[in-house]
Every structure is written in structure tokens, then in C-alpha cells.
């Protein structure tokens, strides 16, 4: 393979297109006809289009040359994603403040400039600002902190 960016983008398209077709057919979405389209018509054709584009792209990736993809930032990717998901898990259960602290600490760890004291200060500061702006100011309805702490 000489152009990995094209090649992998092609495979990604092919995979997603194929998955959409598979789900549509397995789910029994009626196809109908062009005159009277069923719920499956549009997605199946689009899935075909995407797969075809993916094939062409992957072939081009094999045939032409291009720059390498480069290193994947797996650590930041994992930390940012995990932090965001944990935020969603925590926010309605324990409250906005702990959710923010968790997100900020995890995310900040992804930086090469990470310092514990600074990250904690940032987390607390952002939590305070967010509670003031969103809960006190705009009145969104999420808890601030766990009930045990009795806010």
C-alpha cells in the first residue's frame, strides 16, 4: 500500500456502507420502488454508494502514493473520550461539580504540561464557574453535588 490515508479511508467507507446495508436488510426495511420508496430504499442505495466510493478510494490508495498517516494519539484519544463519557455517567447521578472535576482531571492528564496542582485548580475553578453560570444563572436542572454532601 502506498497511500495509507486513502486506503484506510476507503476501507472505513466500505465497512460503514456495508454495515448500513446489512442492518437495513436484516431489519426488514422494505425497499419499495423508486416510485413508491419504502424505508429501506434510500439507505440501501446510499450504503451501496458509500461502499463503491470506499472501494475506489482503497484501490487508489494501493495504486498511488501519498504521505503516511503518522502516529495515532491514542492516549489523548482515550482520555478525552473516557472523560467525556464519565461526565455523562456522573452528571445526573452525583452532580455537575464532580462530573466536571473528573472530566478535567482525566483530560488534563493527556497534556505533556500536566501538573497535578494546576489541574486540580483548573477543575475546581471550572466547576465553580459552571455551577454559577449554568445552574444558578441559566437554571438548568442537574444536581450540583451528591446529596450526601447536602448542598
Amino acid at each position: 500500500m502506498r497511500n495509507p490515508k486513502d486506503f484506510w479511508a476507503g476501507l472505513l467507507f466500505l465497512g460503514i456502507g456495508g454495515a448500513f446495508i446489512a442492518v437495513a436488510l436484516a431489519g426488514g426495511y422494505e425497499l419499495g420502488s423508486a416510485r413508491r420508496m419504502g424505508p429501506g430504499y434510500f439507505p440501501v442505495w446510499l450504503g451501496g454508494g458509500l461502499s463503491l466510493t470506499g472501494l475506489m478510494l482503497a484501490w487508489r490508495g494501493l495504486a498511488t502514493s501519498g504521505a503516511p498517516i503518522g502516529r495515532w494519539a491514542l492516549m489523548p484519544l482515550g482520555l478525552v473520550t473516557l472523560g467525556t463519557i464519565l461526565f455523562g455517567l456522573i452528571v445526573n447521578v452525583a452532580g455537575l461539580a464532580p462530573a466536571i472535576v473528573v472530566l478535567v482531571l482525566l483530560a488534563a492528564f493527556a497534556s505533556i504540561h500536566f501538573r497535578v496542582s494546576q489541574a486540580i485548580a483548573l477543575a475546581v475553578g471550572l466547576a465553580a464557574i459552571s455551577v454559577l453560570v449554568f445552574i444558578k444563572g441559566l437554571g438548568i436542572t442537574v444536581p450540583v453535588m451528591p446529596h450526601v454532601l447536602g448542598y
Binding site: V93, A94, P146, H147, V148, G150
Partner: peptide
Amino acid sequence: NPHKLACVTLAVLS
């Protein structure tokens, strides 16, 4: 249920 857990704790405390 974390809500319940929190409530129980609160009840014990108070």
C-alpha cells in the same frame, strides 16, 4: 441505584 444509596446514607446521617 445511586440515588437510593445517597438517600439511605442521608437518612442514617440525620
